[in-house]
């Protein structure tokens, strides 16, 4: 159960130590809110969109090391992407960009993907 659970890659630890894009965006174009405290992770993802391109992304996360690292990575990956491109970012891509995650922490990358999708959904809804 514990064996490899807390062996994080260097890249994960690097993002955990120095998370990118922490905080909130004032007047965001979309907010994603996923997770719950029972499973130990809550992510909030803010995006700013200009001409169909995500120009800024920020996050706030309650969670373990992997949750913070995946939040940080997904905000990095999404910046500069069009909405269509951003929708193609999978949890696997987030995990791979971090040099992999321990199996027990893969759900954190799923949560990061869901947070992004939820933010984009919110953006689409607001636009209508």
């Amino acid at each position: 159960m514990t064996d490899q659970a807390h062996l994080y890659s260097e890249k994960v630890m690097e993002h955990f130590r120095n998370p990118r894009n922490v905080g909130e965006i004032k007047d965001p174009d979309g907010i994603g809110h996923v997770g719950n405290p029972v499973c130990g992770d809550i992510m909030e993802l803010y995006i700013k969109v200009k001409d169909g391109v995500i120009v800024d992304a920020k996050f706030k996360t309650f969670g373990c090391g992997a949750a913070i690292a995946t939040s940080s990575m997904v905000t990095e990956l999404v910046k500069g992407k069009t909405i269509d491109e951003a929708l193609k970012i999978s949890n696997r891509a987030v995990a791979e960009a971090l040099g992999g995650l321990p199996p027990v922490k893969m759900h954190c990358s799923v949560l990061a993907e869901e947070a992004l999708k939820s933010a984009i959904e919110d953006y689409v809804k607001r636009k209508k």
Binding site: M1, T2, D3, A5, H6, V38, C39, G40, V104, H107
Partner: peptide, 10 residues
């Protein structure tokens, strides 16, 4: 506890 650090539940 050290034995539960790999689990997700509180």
């Amino acid at each position: 506890s050290a034995c539960t650090s790999g689990s997700l539940e509180p």
